[in-house]
Design a protein around this nucleic acid. Sequence first.
DNA 1: TAAATTCTGTCATCGACTGACAAAAAACAT
DNA 2: ATGTTTTTTGTCAGTCGATGACAGAATTTA
Lengths: 209, 209
Amino acid sequence: MTTEPGLRERKKRRTRAALTDAALELFSAKGYDATKVEEIAAAVEISPRTFFRYFDGKEDVALGQLSAMDEDAITALATRPADEAPLTALRAAHGAMLDRLYEEEGGPERFSATHGLIARSPTLLAASLRRDAATEDRLAVIIGERQGADPEQDLRCRLLVRLVLTSARLGVQTACRRGACDPAQLRATVDQALRLATATLPTEWSAWH
Amino acid sequence: MTTEPGLRERKKRRTRAALTDAALELFSAKGYDATKVEEIAAAVEISPRTFFRYFDGKEDVALGQLSAMDEDAITALATRPADEAPLTALRAAHGAMLDRLYEEEGGPERFSATHGLIARSPTLLAASLRRDAATEDRLAVIIGERQGADPEQDLRCRLLVRLVLTSARLGVQTACRRGACDPAQLRATVDQALRLATATLPTEWSAWH
DNA sequence: TAAATTCTGTCATCGACTGACAAAAAACAT
DNA sequence: ATGTTTTTTGTCAGTCGATGACAGAATTTA
């Protein structure tokens, strides 16, 4: 059924890949904000106008991998068994997302590079948080369907998703800030944050000294 | 010691207040993104260049009240008794911040208007989330000092602050989305979100059906 | 090979934002 | 009160991200 990709399609893929590679390299070298779209386009020898036909903007090319991971997480959650507790399903979906990241050639490296950029650029941080918010909404809808609850009415849908996402994000940020970006340490830190948020902290927090 | 404000200072205050009023009105009427800085400046009969001498940018004038509230929350947390449990101190600080909001003439109205803008503009949402992240960092440092912990090492500092802030934010968003922005309902919804996040949810979540 | 489709570059334009500089306004001095 | 200093403001020019319009080039399809 699926006709193999023609020359046009292959060319587009190559250009897109070249753009992300060039962009991430430039961002890492000069910083996100100091890098001009013009430079990214020049590195791939295309016109600046064409860059915007491949990406919605600078943010898009910088956070492309995170968007793909968001999609992974959403499809992973959607295919979880319906009788699973929502927290379990969310953690499993997040785990599956990380699995796919690790399978991909150069995935983890690019991931930690992206988070390094985010940590150094308030602009990118804002864009990344906005993306997270959008993903959160989509995940909350799925949780609502699983639980037969309306996310608009039942605070728990959004709240659960938000707590999990924000804890996981803290784990990632912490791991990357420590420079320990290898899969094992990343997953360990994320797990620690999730455990703290969902179990340890709430019961012991008021007594923390 | 403190010399009373001269004519220059009074004029600056008036201009700044006029700018925020004009900006919020235009934002509410036409939407944040559709409003040009040029229009805000024209409404106050000021050159566009001067607008940027009063505010860092469009985001700044839109979110000015939230920034002031962040400052309130920080000073409130800093003056909490040191032997208080951190979660208690944070909730008290947040409550004190809301108290000040309610005391201010037109405070609640402007607050819910601001959140209405945020809900309708992804640009503003991003800016607002970035601000929250910055505030979170400052609060985490205070919590770290209170607990004798290093926020860079002890995940719990940032995590606690983040969970509280994000839950409170969800409460605010929900209350504003429901159109119920009066102080009582707002506080009730925020309390509900905080209670869910810090007590009910973590212990009962895995069993939610 | 011709026609239809899709990409691409050029050009013009918008809008947020900033540096430079000179004119105007307010504060200060005698 | 008048001249001096400091601060504020407007004008101008320019950068950068982003977008619409259109024509020419490349690819696909007939």
